[in-house]
Write a protein that binds this DNA or RNA. Structure first.
Lengths: 147, 147
DNA sequence: CACAATGTCTACCAATTTAGTGTACATTTG
DNA sequence: CAAATGTACACTAAATTGGTAGACATTGTG
């Protein structure tokens, strides 16, 4: 099961995608729109910013905005960042690999092969799902930021 | 990521499968063979017994044994029992369903559909993997229990 | 019947993770 | 300068994870 943090992050990113190209969005607006605890959301947005997905503008009329185009961010990136890995076992993880505890020979381990297939399918599905797939983008009246 | 408890349960069940039809197995032997903390393993075996997978024989010459044939137990059952659900979101879970937090309309929610596909694939793979697939069964000299 | 070897039961516990909150501060605009 | 914002960092409460302790019940053997 994904953690609330991961789910909140997806919701926040989805919301920011829907406002892409339209200037900054208040944390409080995201919190209200997606029904998220605002202080917790602050931490999450900060993490997303540190990871390069978001930009921010402090002070009055400030807020957050997506740096990349929504079609350039996918769910695998978000899930992996907050969950640490997409795999269900360390031995089939790309990002958090550790030797298998189930077997002597990882090349022939049946458990590993099953969980590897699951990991690969999951990764592929999440990777294929872009933020742009989650919202109706309106690119007609997009504006430039003055940062 | 699966919890240690779930992973230990799979290891214990795998070990008991390899001894299927050959009488009881000491907790301490399972712990030694699979390198598991014995007191924690006791709890896990007890849970597996309460769930109907294992039988036990207390007292001298006692131990645990698989009740069902290894081909009648699959990984989905074990994972679901210890993890609570196989899904990554409640809204796509069969056993722990809760309404979706991501959308107004679950029928058209893209996030839900992606995670539903992942859940279905995962379930199918785990369900197809029987304990008998994990070990070399030797059914030639199986014996009957005298319980 | 005594006793050793085993599983059983109930409780407890420490460490870690999760899901936040508190407080003070820095920055920007008007 | 004041108000509106994001930033930093510490703190914490609750839940979960990963166990451990100790007394007890059951069984086989001598």
């Amino acid at each position: 099961m994904l953690s609330k943090k991961t789910r909140y992050a997806i919701l926040a990113m989805k919301h920011l995608s829907s406002k892409y190209g339209k200037g900054v969005v208040l944390i409080s607006d995201i919190a209200k729109a997606e029904n998220l605890p605002i202080r917790f959301l602050e931490n999450i947005l900060l993490e997303l910013k540190k990871n390069g997905y978001l930009g921010s503008k402090p002070g009055k009329n400030g807020g957050y905005y997506l740096i990349k185009h929504p079609k350039e961010i996918n769910l695998a990136q978000i899930v992996r960042y907050f969950e640490g890995t997409i795999a269900l076992l360390y031995c089939v993880s790309e990002k958090a690999y550790q030797p298998c505890e189930f077997c002597m020979d990882e090349r022939t381990c049946k458990i590993k092969s099953v969980f590897k297939e699951i990991r690969n399918y999951t990764y592929q599905k999440l990777e294929q799902t872009k933020l742009s797939d989650l919202v109706d983008l309106d690119e007609s009246d997009s504006i430039m930021y003055s940062i």
